[in-house]
């Protein structure tokens, strides 16, 4: 039964102290989160509520002060391609082409060039970037850069995807398009995803389960299962139950 759970956060506390300051700022307080395998879990909260800190802990970039975060039953000790991250800024390597960026992880893992070639072209196709293989990141739009960032981690077939407000910097239409891309990918690959967002609508469109976080110090104030079957069309936004959930959560956030 334990194996079913990909990520478990158990009463995690985290605070930061600014240099030259005596007091410290509590960012996360008693956070407990569970992500089942194959599940998409969204963490919604106002900006600056510490939700990205929780993701950084899950990614292994930071350590909790107290409490534990387990991945597949083991304590997380550092970053790993098993828990691949899509950042808010695409964070592509500007000196590499689209294809070289996507091949980065495979090359690092010393996969054979022929297999790298095959996998890269498959995932370039999947995220809809065929024809842009030899472009550099600065030549792409924000949405396309995020597609590269997505392909770069998907190609490693990670056990879990950690997505830190990946579409927050995009314009409204591109954001909708990217949500559809992610949706169709999740139908095809069934990945386990922890998705951080401040956009309640985005959380309800994408996730199976939503955790709602409070303002600082961040605590979980609500956990809910999203009752809509997948795949969900964009028109779900007009569904009365959808609107009701959305306004409930928004009311809790303010």
């Amino acid at each position: 039964m334990m194996v079913q759970q990909a990520l478990i956060a158990n009463s995690v506390h985290k605070s930061f102290s600014a240099p030259a300051e005596e007091s410290s700022l509590a960012v996360l307080e008693n956070i407990s989160v569970i992500v089942e395998q194959g599940e998409i879990v969204a963490l919604v909260g106002p900006s600056g509520c510490g939700k990205s800190t929780l993701l950084n802990i899950a990614a292994g970039f930071e350590k909790p002060d107290t409490g534990e975060v387990l991945f597949m039953g083991n304590t997380i000790t550092g970053p790993s391609p098993e828990r691949a991250v899509v950042f808010q800024s695409a964070s592509l390597f500007p000196w590499l082409t689209v294809k070289e960026n996507i091949a980065f992880g495979l090359k690092t893992a010393k996969v054979k060039p022929k297999i790298i070639e095959e996998k890269c072209s498959r995932f370039i196709e999947l995220v809809g970037l065929a024809g842009f293989e030899n472009y550099y990141p600065y030549q792409l739009s924000g949405g396309m850069q995020q597609r590269v960032a997505l392909a770069r981690v998907l190609v490693l077939e990670p056990k879990m995807l950690l997505m830190d407000e990946p579409f927050a910097a995009l314009d409204a239409q591109t954001r909708l398009a990217m949500q559809q891309v992610l949706m169709s990918i999740s139908m095809a690959l069934k990945p386990t995803i922890l998705f951080i967002t401040h956009d309640v609508e985005e959380a309800l469109i994408l996730a199976d389960k939503v955790y709602v976080m409070s303002k600082l110090p961040g605590t979980i104030i609500r956990e809910l299962e999203v009752p809509f079957a997948r795949p969900r069309p964009i028109s779900i936004i007009g569904d009365p139950q959808f609107s009701k959930l959305k306004s409930e959560i928004l009311a809790q956030l303010f």
Partner: peptide
């Protein structure tokens, strides 16, 4: 970029 490199292995 350092974090991206680390999480890519």
């Amino acid at each position: 970029l350092l974090r991206a490199g680390q999480m890519l292995g």
